[in-house]
Nucleic acid binder design. Sequence first.
DNA 1: CAGACTGTCATATGACAGTATGACACACGA
DNA 2: TCGTGTGTCATACTGTCATATGACAGTCTG
Lengths: 133, 133
Amino acid sequence: MLFQLNYKSGKAVYLQLVDQVKAAAASGALHAGSPLPGIRPLAEELRVNRNTVAKAYSALESQGVIETIAGKGCFVRANHSPFKKEVRRKLLADTLDGAVIQAHHLQIDKADFLRVAEERFDALEHKRHAANS
Amino acid sequence: MLFQLNYKSGKAVYLQLVDQVKAAAASGALHAGSPLPGIRPLAEELRVNRNTVAKAYSALESQGVIETIAGKGCFVRANHSPFKKEVRRKLLADTLDGAVIQAHHLQIDKADFLRVAEERFDALEHKRHAANS
DNA sequence: CAGACTGTCATATGACAGTATGACACACGA
DNA sequence: TCGTGTGTCATACTGTCATATGACAGTCTG
């Protein structure tokens, strides 16, 4: 599980974590029973306070996405069936709309927009591989 | 100009207003010279404090999106980007990173990601065309 | 059992978002 | 000119986000 924070989005850090765990659970990237990173290690990795990660995990539990066992850790819950592909594409489309609007405002044309999109996708792919090695 | 606030998004109200005005300007719904709603009437319509709307307008002006004339109102500026192309691409890249992360968590591959990106770009292009006619 | 890990709780502090309110200067029309 | 509209500035208060700590209880391993 690779987390990444965007401090320019204006969105609370703990909510970004919530969204990312939800998305991973919804897609099946995190299957039922998968352990989540510990609060302290994750906080250190993201250079964020323990309480911020704890707040995200707390929110996820109260929403039924994860289950936390004191002394052991947090685990993805089983009950949520993954979203169908079309639903996942719709979720992504909503997010991309913001980027499209910004591109228009910045007068970036379609070709450039897609070029940057591909570049950023590849960049994360690289990070993923680096993290796995 | 129709504004709509989402209190569940976790995003600051004034930032939502900023994004929506930018979107309207980018899509052509608000062309250069268009007057924006007054601070006080809009605040009342959205059931939000004057200062919140004022803060959004203030941010929009400092970003060069609108022009405000004391005693008259706020108006959309001609769409010119003061930033050099590389800077603009960097700004877009920051926004796209969020979508890329979501795509990874939703297990949407590169081809699908770029397909959705193109589709959303075309969708806004279509809106622009409709607004200009 | 002892130590190292897990999550939990509580407190304090600083920054920001949003509200509420009052006052001010400028522009325009009756 | 006067009234009403516009945006602007200042202050005070509440709540949230995030940080920084310290302390506690449960779980697992050596």
